[in-house]
Design a protein around this nucleic acid. Structure first.
Length: 285
DNA sequence: CAGTTCGCCTGGGGGC
DNA sequence: TGCCCCCAGGCGAACT
């Protein structure tokens, strides 16, 4: 599932490919994808707009067009593909690929920006251009980005104080800190040496400092390596990231040992989410 | 208000 | 091999 590092790689790739590209035709094939407008209005509005800016907040992608803000969330396995022509779209395997393409944006140069999403969980939102896109309604429950330089351990301490939920659940709360998903939450807590089950309100400033430091180090490293491509998530064009090779705990099985203590990595469930950790290096408080 | 559960989806994996 | 069932997972809505 795409988290901040994967979304950052997607937005960087799209910026490289689509800067100032003009949409000449838009089609939405799965009505729920256009989450805040009827499909017809959504498609009509996109026509003749150019891609001007490409940004990310948490796991959301933001495209600034001439007169509109387009916001997308890939959820579990949404992906953007850029094909050279509509003929290439028609040439896709109808069952494996074509049926999972739910949006087609034809560009002036003939290329087609396709949105593909097997599980249909992803969503797109379209708004008249706002003075501050980060204040748009769809982002009302999104807090500071995990890589926002202004985010401090003190802020996390203040927020965490009021929460009895496990720290892992806190890290997954996009309002508390945006962009962390199940994979990086496990990795961050391993590197910070904190048990994922520890109630958020038990952590002190030093703990939050280690969490924030680990968050920055891991997310930046993952961005450098092109993100994590395992199981369900891959980029649309077939290229892969390589951060999965550096995962210390997430998704490990019984034979894999802790990098620090050579002890066994344990898999458990926290608030319904699969969770991996080293009980020896990550003691509960 | 904080926390928990449910529903959305589909392919893939486990069980037999 | 084939079939069935269940699970994964982010997020908002509904509920306690």
């Amino acid at each position: 599932m795409p988290e901040a590092p994967e979304v950052q790689n997607v937005i960087t790739y799209l910026a490289d490919q689509l800067q100032d590209a003009k949409i000449v035709d838009a089609r939405i094939l799965h009505p729920k994808l256009a989450a805040n407008l009827p499909v017809d209005a959504f498609c009509t509005m996109l026509k003749n707009q150019h891609f001007r800016k490409f940004e990310r907040l948490g796991k959301y992608l933001h495209f600034q067009l001439d007169d509109l803000d387009l916001i997308a969330h890939l959820r579990m396995e949404g992906k953007f593909l850029i094909l050279d022509s509509m003929a290439d779209v028609d040439a896709l395997d109808p069952v494996k690929d074509r049926k999972h393409i739910h949006a087609l944006f034809t560009l002036e140069d003939g290329r087609v920006l396709c949105y593909k999403d097997t599980r249909k969980f992803g969503r797109m939102y379209l708004y008249p251009k706002a003075a501050n896109w980060q204040a748009l309604p769809v982002l009302a429950n999104v807090g500071k980005d995990a890589l926002d330089p202004s985010l401090t351990a003190q802020e996390l301490l203040e927020k965490g104080k009021k929460r009895k939920i496990p720290v892992k659940t806190f890290l997954l709360d996009q309002k508390a800190i945006a962009g962390i998903g199940n994979i990086y939450a496990d990795e961050i807590l391993f590197h910070a040496g904190i048990s994922p089950a520890t109630p958020a309100c038990h952590l002190d400033l030093e703990d939050w400092t280690r969490i924030l430091d680990a968050t920055r180090a891991l997310l930046n490293r993952a961005i450098e390596l092109g993100g994590t491509t395992i199981r369900s998530f891959s980029y649309g064009d077939g290229h892969a990231g390589s951060f999965q090779n550096e995962l210390a705990v997430h998704g490990k099985d019984k034979e894999d040992l802790c990098k620090n203590c050579q002890g066994k990595i344990v898999q458990t469930r926290i608030n319904g989410r699969s969770t991996w950790y080293c009980p020896n290096c990550q003691q509960e408080k």
